[in-house]
Design a protein around this nucleic acid. Structure first.
Lengths: 108, 108
DNA sequence: TGGTTATTTGGCAATATAGCCAAATAGAAA
DNA sequence: TTTCTATTTGGCTATATTGCCAAATAACCA
């Protein structure tokens, strides 16, 4: 068994970290349906443009989304469609975790 | 489409965040094979006991692992086996992301 | 050219996270 | 009881993350 902080675990954690934020999950969900420019996403998210831009560039750095410039707009699109499967998959974990937590509360 | 910071996305992000650390991924991997006490895990991880204990309690709060006290030891076990499927699933994302990043570097 | 719009980036403050050491706690055994 | 071991928690520092505003940049249009 490999120790943590070796490549494998660090890399894996990096990807999870990139997705581990409500706004970024929202963005990935939205981009999974179709590409959007920053202004559209800003409108959907309801935060400052600069904030949304930073979240998007973080996702870009993780290799999850890509960009295409058209006119003054920058269009973001999901580059890794399997990220959606992964999210669906992790939602099961979320639901199971929730169920466990409810059980734990009842036990108190 | 639901806005971020509503329950669904926040909860999902919480679970991902709990897993988004090299040491915690390592711990989940180890506990996926069999239960372990903190001292065993500390040995495997190679960090301070207090650090490992804190990572474990974070996983416990997320509902991912559970404990059983036996003697002076505390045994941790994976409470949500589907977390392993999820990790396998997210590894695909990691690999795809890596491939995309390599492509991006080549383009420069 | 100058002006307008979309986006990114610098800078800052608030907050969260991670790690260690040392102290507190819990249980087992002498 | 005291002592020992395993684990958790308090306290601290260092670092990372988030979000906003304001300034910089980029691409278009007049």
């Amino acid at each position: 068994m490999e120790k943590p902080d070796t490549g494998k675990y660090a890399l894996h954690a990096k990807i999870l970290k990139a997705l581990a934020h409500p706004t970024r999950l929202f963005l990935v969900d939205a981009l999974g349906k179709k590409e959007h420019c920053v202004c559209e996403l800003t409108e959907m998210v309801g935060a400052d443009t600069s904030t949304v831009s930073r979240h998007l560039s973080l996702l870009k750095n993780a290799g999850i989304v890509g960009i295409e410039k058209r006119g003054t707009n920058v269009y973001y699109a999901l580059k890794i469609p399997c990220a959606l499967n992964f999210l669906r998959c992790s939602r099961e974990v979320m639901e199971a975790s929730l169920a466990e937590q409810i059980k734990a509360i009842r036990k108190q």
